[in-house]
Design a protein around this nucleic acid. Structure first.
Length: 147
DNA sequence: ATTCTTACA
DNA sequence: TGTAAGTA
């Protein structure tokens, strides 16, 4: 069997690398995570690792904040609008009972799920989170769902 | 040397 | 946002 290949979701960059890559302070990178905008991979040591998709996502976030004057809470709200129930195929029952579906302040991956399909899943590896890596890929998600 | 969390100017 | 303390 072949070993897992490196792909765009593989955590490889340390926080300092990302900091240099995007000209964002490590402090700010941690803040984006606290604010629920991104999910980082954590080593057992507690140290963060970022994937290529994470870098692209943060780049998109930076552009929104710096160039378009979008607030962090506004970005959080946009993420909360992602049609996770469609992407994951939730039943109407699951959807209407879901705490993520019933709010538009926080992304689904920041919501604690108990008895539904998301309960024992790692949101970092969930398509709802991974498929909106770059700015335009959100549209691709919608496009796939509506065709 | 780097990164972590928490706290504070 | 930046910086500092005290760790790991």
């Amino acid at each position: 069997m072949k070993k897992d290949q490196i792909n765009k979701d593989t955590p490889i960059y340390t926080i300092s690398v990302v900091s240099n890559l995007l000209n964002v302070s490590v402090h700010t990178l941690r803040m984006y995570e606290r604010e629920g905008l991104i999910i980082t991979y954590k080593k057992t040591s507690g140290h963060r690792l970022y994937s290529q998709n994470d870098v692209e996502k943060i780049s998109c976030i930076r552009n929104a904040i710096k160039e378009k004057k979008v607030s962090i809470s506004a970005i959080r709200m946009m993420y909360s609008l992602l049609p996770c129930w469609k992407i994951l195929g939730c039943s109407e029952e699951e959807r209407t009972q879901c705490k993520a579906y019933n709010n538009y302040d926080n992304p689904c991956w920041t919501v604690i799920h108990y008895n539904n399909i998301c309960a024992d899943k790692d949101c970092r590896e969930c398509p709802v989170y991974t498929k909106q890596a770059s700015c335009n890929s959100i549209k691709d998600v919608i496009k796939d769902l509506t065709k």
